[in-house]
Simulated assay, not measured.
Amino acid sequence: MADRSELAAFLRSRRERLTPSDVGLPDGINRRAPGLRRQEVAQLAGISVDYLVRLEQARGSHPSRQVLAALARALMLGVDEREYLYRMAGEHPPTVTGPNRIVPQSVRIILDTIATPAYVADATFEVLAWNRAAVPFLGDFDESPGADRNMVRWMFAQAVDHPSWSEESTREFARSVVADLRAAYARYPGNPALAALLTELLGVSPRFADMWATHEVEVRRTHQKHVDHPELGPLDFECQILHVSDTDQRIIVYCAAPGTRTAAIFHALATAGSK
């Protein structure tokens, strides 16, 4: 149900928080009130000033979804704010059609400065960015085509009788990945890339098909991991998962207890070649 008074107040507050430079307009002079002028927002959204005035005064006709989308862009609304705008107008928020694969610059800075293996993956387990310390675990993706950067594809490309599948920890991790992928399937209904990945996995991996058929749904969480690395030896660490706001991306960080052999190896990987 629409709340016209709250919609009006919300539009005013979002307009008043912006400056002309935020949206690429000149600052101008004689600004007696904070924020953008109504005519500036109307220009950015492609609507009339009179119509915006009526919306901000809780008058006039019900805004269409096209107008709401234009206002969300003009006011530079975040994901949560955009959803709120639609709901206050009595509309269902637009469906997100697919995972966001643009890694924010701030996240790349985190990867480059953190002294432990870390990488970024989207909701379909596509690896989008990684740091130097993660290369011994993921491989050098700069030498790999995009299709080889999906963690689910790697995991279930292994033969059913591969020795790693005999480990309970491997099977539990695989089940958690499949449950997380099903949660993504619900968030992005009809997404062609996700549908193609599922079709591929169901066709080539009986183990994936069996796990998918259980209909387990669970967003992936932090877990303990033991790795017998062919070059680095046995490693014990925690996979900490940090969610990147407004993107549905995750930063996966390998966290070893301070003072351990694993921590020393992670630090050495992160600092190798930096001197």
Rank of each mutant, 00 (worst) to 15 (best):
M88Y: 03
D112W: 02
P258F: 00
W165V: 02
C239L: 10
Y254K: 01
Q66C: 05
T124F: 12
L75Y: 10
T262A: 01
T262C: 01
P99D: 07
D112L: 02
E168S: 14
S169T: 12
G35L: 08
A45R: 08
A209Q: 10
R175Y: 02
P94A: 01
P136D: 06
R82M: 07
V160H: 10
R182C: 09
C255K: 10
L232Q: 00
Q240P: 00
R153Q: 08
C239H: 04
P26V: 06
S205C: 05
F141S: 09
L68C: 06
G273N: 12
P234V: 01
I109A: 14
P93C: 04
I241N: 13
A209M: 08
V41W: 05
H62R: 15
P94T: 02
I110H: 03
L55D: 11
P145G: 03
P94G: 01
W165H: 06
L111A: 03
A186L: 11
P117W: 00
Y254F: 13
V152T: 12
G90D: 07
Y84G: 06
R37A: 01
W154E: 06
L55I: 08
M155D: 02
V160N: 10
A268K: 04
R54N: 06
P145N: 09
L44C: 03
V219H: 11
A186M: 09
R65N: 08
D180C: 00
M88Q: 15
A179L: 04
Q249T: 09
F156K: 00
E91K: 09
E218R: 14
Q105S: 15
V135F: 05
N30K: 10
F208I: 07
I252H: 14
A133E: 03
A264I: 00
L128G: 00
A256C: 00
C239I: 09
R207L: 15
E168M: 11
G146F: 08
V127Q: 08
L138I: 11
F125G: 05
A134H: 01
A159T: 13
T19G: 15
M1T: 07
G24V: 12
V160K: 09
Q158F: 14
E6T: 09
W130I: 04
P104A: 07
P206M: 13
S13A: 15
V120E: 12
D148N: 13
L242S: 09
D22V: 09
V53G: 07
V120G: 13
H162M: 04
G146N: 14
P258R: 00
L202M: 14
M151W: 04
D161C: 02
S48L: 08
